[in-house]
Amino acid sequence: MAQHNELGREAEQLAAEYLSAKGYQLKESNFRYKHAEIDLIMEFKGLLVFVEVKFRSGTGFGYAEEFVDYRKRQLIIRAADHYIHKVDWHKDIRFDIVGVYKDKSGVIRFKQFEDAFY
């Protein structure tokens, strides 16, 4: 597996742990539908939350939320729609982005963007 894929998987695990500590319950990770993948599907206070995780080693090339473009959002929405029908979900949903930032000294920080798109 390429190093960027390994870093991505590690970031998803760290984000899941971060959100779990905030009271989120992991329902599924790496949910795939056709060409789309949802990194994390979590439940929080009656909401089904679809989470896109982005890893950045610094912000020199931009922030995590800037890397979820229109096409990526549309793929996530399509996959979420499929998941909602699959599990027969009838409550509210939300789309979040979690940025996982690692600085030069190895310190990990998180930035969560709730209700980032729809």
Rank of each mutant, 00 (worst) to 15 (best):
Q25Y: 07
F110P: 03
L7S: 00
Y24N: 03
E66F: 04
E66I: 01
S29Y: 05
K54Y: 00
A2M: 13
K102S: 04
E10P: 00
F110V: 07
F55T: 01
F67P: 04
R73A: 05
V107P: 02
I93Y: 10
S29M: 02
D92I: 01
A36F: 09
V68G: 00
E28L: 08
F113K: 06
K27S: 11
T59Y: 07
F117D: 14
H82L: 13
Q13Y: 08
A36I: 13
A80L: 15
V100T: 06
L47S: 02
G106H: 06
Y24G: 11
K27A: 10
G106L: 11
F117E: 06
N5E: 10
R56S: 03
F117S: 05
A64V: 09
D69P: 00
Y33A: 13
G58P: 13
K86I: 12
I108N: 00
V68W: 13
A2C: 02
F50P: 00
F95Q: 12
I77R: 14
N30E: 15
I76G: 07
E12Y: 08
S29R: 07
V87D: 06
E65H: 09
Q25H: 13
V107N: 02
V49E: 09
V87P: 03
K86N: 01
E37Y: 11
E17A: 12
L19A: 05
K22Y: 01
G106F: 10
Y18Q: 10
K86Y: 07
K34W: 03
K102N: 00
Y118E: 12
R32M: 11
L14I: 03
Y83V: 14
G46N: 01
G58R: 13
N5W: 13
I84G: 10
